[in-house]
Amino acid sequence: MLSIKQNLLIILLISGLVFASDAGTDGINYSNPQETACGGTGLEVLICEIMKGLLRLGPFIAVIALVLAGVIYVYANMFVTADQRGRYHTLATGLAVGALILAAIVGAAGLIVQTGEGFLTSSS
């Protein structure tokens, strides 16, 4: 059962996707922001580089977390006693779910922003 906030978020996202315009500047590749060519003034380049750094870091962390989750899960099943195994499983599940959500957010960051930008506009 989804909460009111979650329902609202889903409606917002779906509406945004339906009404999304071709939002985007020439320099930003929304479908793959990491391919953005950082140009312009010093501050713009700096923030762009920070964004690209974070976009590189995100999947890196997600993969590490995912592998770690697998390792912990296997370790728990093979080397940990039954009474302690639940804690390891919880940690592994947390890592796996967190990693998947992180990967999803990083992968869709550009599109989420694009959808948000188009949300209040009515024409394409």
């Binding site: 974070l54 957010i105 990083v106 960051a109 989420i112 948000g116």
Partner: peptide, 8 residues
Amino acid sequence: YIMVSMLV
């Protein structure tokens, strides 16, 4: 850029 960074 900031919004994408914030999402990450």
